[in-house]
């Protein structure tokens, strides 16, 4: 359960990994994970390989992250979602809004 932030300084990249359930209870932690990065042109990776479940408020949190990154002209990609999580992203057609690497 929870959330892991890893900074790859040389690549100007931040990896946020979600473990267990990705839902409203993660809201404050999730926001803290990115809100202090304010450099331009950064890459954010949302690693969902250990995410078992995701609800609609998690989709909302991803949209907030996307908004934050777009203000900094950075890029966001989601990597390795499990099948169950990918299904949720697909129903919401998030592959049309951002990059999802399976």
């Amino acid at each position: 359960m929870g959330l892991d932030v890893q900074e790859l300084a040389q690549d100007n990249t931040v990896v946020i990994a979600i473990k267990g359930r990705f839902d409203f209870s993660l809201h404050p932690q999730f926001k803290d994970a990115y809100v202090n990065y304010t450099k331009d042109n950064m890459t954010f990776v949302l690693d969902l390989k250990d995410t078992a479940y995701m609800d609609s408020s998690a989709l909302g949190m991803i949209l907030l992250l996307k908004e934050h990154i777009e203000k900094l002209s950075g890029t966001l990609k989601i990597t390795h979602p499990t099948d169950a999580v990918y299904k949720i992203l697909e129903i919401a057609q998030f592959q049309r809004l951002l990059t999802i690497e399976r």
Partner: peptide, 15 residues
């Protein structure tokens, strides 16, 4: 008929 558009209220205009 599967979902073919992101939920409403995310994008300023429909795709």
């Amino acid at each position: 008929i599967a979902s073919f558009h992101p939920p409403l209220g995310i994008l300023p205009n429909l795709l």
